[in-house]
Amino acid sequence: MRHRAALVEKARLSIEEGSKSFAAASMLFDKTTRERVWLLYAWCRRCDDIADNQDMGGELGDQSNAASRLKSIRVLTRRAFDGLPTADVAFDAFGLVAQECGITPEMADDVISGFALDAKEWRPRNEGDLLQYCFHVAGAVGVMMALVMGVDKDDTETLDRACDLGLAFQLANIARDLVEDDAAGRCYLPMEWLAEEDIEPGQHTKPHHRTELADMASKLVLLMDTHTKAARLGAARLPFRSRWAILSAARIYSEIGYEVRRLRETAWDGRVYTSKAAKLRHVAAAFFEAIANTPRGPDEMPRWTRSQLAEKARSA
């Protein structure tokens, strides 16, 4: 196993390059939690890059041999859990944080299953399928992140809310990247939604369907908003610094979704992002929100729960 300090430093560089939003929010954690967040992020980023044959979330590479890349992720992750060297810093980092925080192979498998869906060019048929995909690629990461922050593995309620935050992040990503994903041959909009809008397969990003695309993006953002509000209920149970960090990330990422909804048909003329000044405003607002610690949940809790999505994933 590599020296811990070296792994932490490599992981820090990974998050700074891969996600400025997460990097900024991570600085609000206490030192130990912050380092563990970096270690976990490094594995997530590396798995994503291997699966999509890309570098730090950049342009997708050749998508052939997807099954081989997926196998590599599984083999390296298994070696990491076994405490064996992997010759890859990110997987060694994951082995370390998994050992320190009680992350299980089953939790990692939940995440890897999301890459498997992309590898077989899977498409969601309905809203439940959409949320199942979001569970794999982000909700399950939220559960691991909760363990990193010290949440007990038996604290089902808090883990459920951590999953909600991951789902919300992914829904914001999907809304922002609808056109970009289509260019890469991917579509995460449920087939039922496309049929309701009377859109032909593969035509949803065409100019004459831009209004319908904006309507479906608004549906994604509405789901995002519900899960974000539910997640705030779980954040209330965290220590102050972790609560501040999570609320900051929730505000920053939610703003991406809200901006997509606000821009409607012009949302994909350029990439929606949160400026540095806006991030600072969200961090400041989250500070006072964390102090007050009186979250208001959604009018109705999310239709799809972590247990339902996990069960749906197992049966699939």
Rank of each mutant, 00 (worst) to 15 (best):
residue 2 R to D: 08
residue 4 R to K: 12
residue 8 V to A: 13
residue 11 A to W: 10
residue 14 S to I: 05
residue 20 K to I: 08
residue 22 F to D: 07
residue 22 F to T: 07
residue 24 A to E: 05
residue 25 A to M: 11
residue 26 S to G: 12
residue 28 L to R: 10
residue 31 K to Y: 06
residue 31 K to W: 13
residue 33 T to W: 07
residue 36 R to E: 14
residue 42 A to D: 14
residue 44 C to T: 13
residue 47 C to N: 09
residue 47 C to G: 09
residue 50 I to W: 08
residue 60 L to I: 11
residue 62 D to R: 12
residue 63 Q to N: 11
residue 64 S to R: 14
residue 64 S to F: 07
residue 72 S to M: 12
residue 73 I to V: 15
residue 74 R to D: 13
residue 75 V to E: 15
residue 78 R to F: 08
residue 79 R to V: 00
residue 83 G to T: 00
residue 83 G to C: 04
residue 84 L to A: 06
residue 86 T to S: 08
residue 87 A to G: 00
residue 87 A to R: 03
residue 90 A to N: 08
residue 94 F to E: 00
residue 98 A to D: 06
residue 98 A to M: 06
residue 98 A to T: 06
residue 98 A to K: 08
residue 100 E to P: 05
residue 103 I to W: 06
residue 110 D to P: 00
residue 112 I to F: 02
residue 116 A to Y: 01
residue 118 D to N: 04
residue 121 E to N: 15
residue 123 R to D: 01
residue 126 N to G: 03
residue 129 D to P: 04
residue 135 F to S: 01
residue 137 V to T: 05
residue 141 V to I: 15
residue 141 V to M: 11
residue 143 V to R: 15
residue 144 M to N: 11
residue 145 M to I: 08
residue 147 L to M: 10
residue 150 G to A: 07
residue 152 D to S: 13
residue 153 K to A: 11
residue 153 K to L: 06
residue 154 D to S: 13
residue 155 D to T: 06
residue 158 T to N: 05
residue 158 T to D: 04
residue 159 L to K: 01
residue 159 L to G: 03
residue 159 L to H: 03
residue 160 D to Y: 00
residue 161 R to Y: 03
residue 161 R to G: 02
residue 162 A to D: 01
residue 167 L to H: 01
residue 169 F to C: 02
residue 172 A to V: 04
residue 174 I to D: 01
residue 180 E to D: 03
residue 181 D to N: 01
residue 181 D to Y: 00
residue 195 A to C: 06
residue 196 E to H: 05
residue 198 D to G: 05
residue 199 I to L: 09
residue 200 E to S: 13
residue 207 P to I: 07
residue 208 H to Y: 11
residue 208 H to Q: 14
residue 210 R to I: 12
residue 211 T to I: 12
residue 214 A to W: 04
residue 218 S to A: 15
residue 219 K to S: 07
residue 223 L to A: 10
residue 223 L to T: 01
residue 228 T to S: 09
residue 232 R to L: 11
residue 235 A to H: 07
residue 241 R to T: 15
residue 244 W to M: 05
residue 244 W to I: 04
residue 244 W to E: 02
residue 244 W to V: 06
residue 245 A to Y: 09
residue 246 I to V: 14
residue 251 R to Y: 03
residue 251 R to G: 15
residue 252 I to C: 07
residue 255 E to K: 10
residue 256 I to K: 08
residue 263 L to T: 04
residue 263 L to C: 10
residue 264 R to K: 14
residue 266 T to L: 01
residue 275 S to C: 08
residue 276 K to T: 14
residue 279 K to Q: 12
residue 282 H to E: 08
residue 284 A to T: 15
residue 285 A to R: 15
residue 287 F to H: 09
residue 299 D to M: 03
residue 301 M to I: 01
residue 306 R to H: 03
residue 308 Q to E: 09
residue 314 R to D: 10
